[in-house]
Structure formats: structure tokens, C-alpha cells
């Protein structure tokens, strides 16, 4: 079976329909394991129990960027190959990515207040993530503004690829500028600086959140295909009523 055949919407619906229950079950299982591990994870010697916020904040932050990278890859599919399933993948990822970015901002703010003494500071990391959130909202607005899905997909793809410039800025903001936000402590050259007793639950939660993202994305893609079918049928109905 070729990639083009796999990317056929009907075939995608059949395959994703089979994969979705397994993916959902794996997500629930990963969260159960993660939550058990969090309950046994020790407090940080400096931050105390607030380190538990890290188990949701860090995966949300990773997935906010992952969502944009996924949309950027799909944008290439839209602009280069003009494949309608790439449009569907990009559109379905936008609300999910924005939700994870909101989660990152809210949990980070709630972690910042007891540790930094403030909910918010305009440092490079926090501001660049806020910009990411606003760009997600911009893409969502663009999808809603243009009625024709193909035209909307192209406009959203251009905006997504322009917005991808922000991804390395978010990642390296803590190295390029003097920020209140701490530098990278997991994905860094020289290895993680986190003790395994805290690192392992963090990785399990990151896997659980990633599975959740993929499950929701697959379900949202299926919805988007159905939405386009409804739109086609509405157009058929309108054409039939204008003829009669």
C-alpha cells in the first residue's frame, strides 16, 4: 500500500477507527502509571511539593511546540503536495495545540507565584510562549474567517510556516537572554540535571500527554473529514434544490 493510498480520507477513516480505541486505552494506562509514580515521587529539596506542577507543566510545554511542528509539517503537505488530508491534519491540530499552550501558561503561572513571587514576568521564555498561544488563536481565527476549506488551508499554512520561526526562539530563549525562567534541565547537552526519582515520572507523564495529544488529534481529524462530507452534502442539496 502506498503512502498516497494511506492518505486517502476513506482509508484514513477506516484505519483510524481501528487505531483510536487502542490509542485511547494506551493513553489511560500511561496516565494511571504516571499518576501512581507522581504520588511516590519525592519533593524537590528547594521547591518542595510544588515540583509536582512540573509533571503537567513540562509535558504541556513540549506539546505546545510539538503541535506547531505538526502543523508546520502539515502546512508543507498543503503547500507542496496540496493534499487535502494535510489540510485536515493542520486544522485538527490547532485547537489541541492551543489548549496545551494555555495549560502550559496557566500551570507555569501557578508554579511561578510561590517560587518566583509573581504569576507573570515579561521574560523571553514566557513572552515567546504567549506569542505562540496568540499565533494558535490567529490560525484558528483564519480557519473560521475563510469559508472555502482549501483557500483557508493555504492561508493557514503560510501563517503556520511564518510562525514556525518562534519555535527555536522559545527553545533557546533561556540561553540567548537572561530570563527568570530556568534553563533547560531535561533536553540538554550533557544530559538531564534532574534526579531519576523525579525524571522517570516526568518522562512517563510526557508519554501519557503525547498519547493524549495523538488520540485527540486522530479523533479531531476524523471529525474534520466528516465536517467536509457534511459540507459536500449541503452543497449537493443546495444544487438539487436550485435545479428543481
Amino acid at each position: 500500500m502506498s503512502v498516497i493510498e494511506l492518505a486517502n480520507p476513506s482509508r484514513f477513516l477506516a484505519l483510524s477507527g481501528r487505531a483510536l480505541p487502542w490509542l485511547a486505552a494506551a493513553t489511560v494506562l500511561a496516565f494511571v502509571v504516571g499518576i501512581i509514580q507522581i504520588s511516590f515521587a519525592p519533593d524537590d529539596y528547594q521547591q518542595g511539593a510544588t515540583v509536582k506542577i512540573m509533571f503537567i507543566h513540562v509535558p504541556a510545554a513540549w506539546l505546545s511546540i510539538f503541535g506547531w511542528l505538526l502543523m508546520s509539517t502539515a502546512a508543507l503537505g498543503t503547500l507542496v503536495w496540496r493534499h487535502p488530508l494535510a489540510d485536515v491534519a493542520a486544522k485538527a491540530a490547532a485547537p489541541i495545540g492551543s489548549a496545551f499552550t494555555l495549560m502550559c501558561l496557566v500551570t507555569g503561572s501557578l508554579w511561578g507565584r510561590p517560587m518566583w513571587g509573581t504569576y507573570w514576568v515579561w521574560d523571553a521564555r514566557l513572552t515567546s510562549v504567549l506569542v505562540l498561544f496568540l499565533m494558535y488563536l490567529g490560525v484558528l481565527a483564519l480557519w473560521r474567517t475563510i469559508e472555502d476549506p482549501t483557500q483557508a488551508a493555504r492561508a493557514a499554512a503560510v501563517l503556520t510556516l511564518v510562525g514556525a520561526i518562534n519555535v527555536p526562539i522559545i527553545k533557546f530563549s533561556v540561553d540567548w537572554w537572561n530570563t527568570l525562567h530556568q534553563p533547560a534541565s531535561v533536553l540538554r547537552l550533557g544530559g538531564s540535571t534532574i534526579h531519576p526519582a523525579i525524571l522517570v515520572p516526568l518522562i512517563v507523564m510526557a508519554i501519557a500527554f503525547t498519547l493524549l495529544f495523538l488520540t485527540l488529534h486522530l479523533a479531531a481529524m476524523r471529525n474534520e473529514i466528516m465536517r467536509r462530507r457534511v459540507r459536500s452534502m449541503m452543497m449537493l442539496q443546495a444544487a438539487a434544490s436550485s435545479e428543481s
Binding site: 511539593a49 506542577i53 495549560m103 496557566v106 501557578l110 508554579w111
Partner: peptide, 17 residues
């Protein structure tokens, strides 16, 4: 689980998520 003096922030963060 003992969440210490900042329990409200931790619980609110999880509730928001």
C-alpha cells in the same frame, strides 16, 4: 499526599489541567 504550604497552587494547577 502532603503538599506543603503551597498546596492551593498545586491543586489549582492540576484542576486547571
Amino acid at each position: 499526599m502532603h503538599l506543603g504550604p503551597h498546596a492551593a497552587f498545586i491543586v489549582t494547577a492540576y484542576a486547571a489541567a
